[in-house]
Amino acid sequence: MNNIVRIVAAFALSLGTISAAQAHGIWFAQRATQLALIYGIGADDLDSVKRQPLVKSVAGYDAEWKPIVTSLRVAGPLLLVETESQPTIVTAVLENGVWSKTPDGEWIKKGKDEVPNAVISEHTVKYTTAIRGPLSSQIPALPDQTLQVVPVGTAIPVTLGKPIKVRVLFQGKPVKGAEVIADFVNDPDGKPLKSAANGIVTLKVRNQGLNVIAATYVGPADDPTKVDRVEYRATLTFVLPHAPE
C-alpha cells in the first residue's frame, strides 16, 4: 500500500499538482513600530525566535542596491531588524531543513532515509524581500535570494484592487511555473497563478495595508537519498498607506 501511495505521490509531483507542503513562509511586518521577521502562514505568526538559528542571512540595501549592514536582534518574542541606515529593501533567508510526510499526514523533520514510509520528502528554504522605500530602479536579482519575487518596474499601486505585475526569479533568472498567491497572510489557501515563461504574473493588490505575495517553486532534489524535491518559497512584501484620518 505504501508503495502505491508513493507511486501516486510521485506521479502527482511529476505533474506539479501536489499542494505545497510545509507551507510556512517568512516575511517582514511591522510590530510595535519595528520591522520584524515573521515565520508562519496566514494569521499564524509563529515562534520566530526559536527559528533564529535557521536564518541564514538577513540583508538590507539602499536605493542604489548597495548593501547596508543589517542584523536581527531578539526582543521578547520577536526578531527585529536592525540596520545601520535606512534601507530601501531588506531580505532574509531561512533554511527550514528536510521534512518528510507520513501516510497519515504527519510531517517529520527527517529525510526519507529515516522515514521509510514517507509519501513525500522535501528540502524547504524560505526567502523574503520587503520594500521599505521608493524604488528608483528595478529590484535586481540578489545574491542570497535563490527564489525571489520582484515587482516589474518601480511603480507599486497605491490602492487595493489594482493590478501589480511581479516577476519570479529562480537563481536570478525568470522562471516558469512558479505558483504565486496574492495574499499569503489573509488568503493563504487562495488559488495560485502560475508564472509565465518570462516569470511574470499579474495579480490584484489585495490589501490597503500589508501585502505579502508568495511564490512557490519546486525544484529537483539536491540530495536524492533524503528528499524527493526542494521546495523554494519566496515572499514579497510592501505596504499601501491608509487614508488620512
Partner: peptide, 21 residues
C-alpha cells in the same frame, strides 16, 4: 538626491526611518 533618515532610540534601540527624494 535621495535622503534616507534612520532614527534610533538610545534606550530601546527602536528604529524608525523615512525616505525623502
Amino acid at each position: 538626491s535621495k535622503v534616507a533618515v534612520l532614527v534610533t532610540n538610545k534606550a530601546t534601540m527602536a528604529q524608525t526611518g523615512a525616505n525623502f527624494s
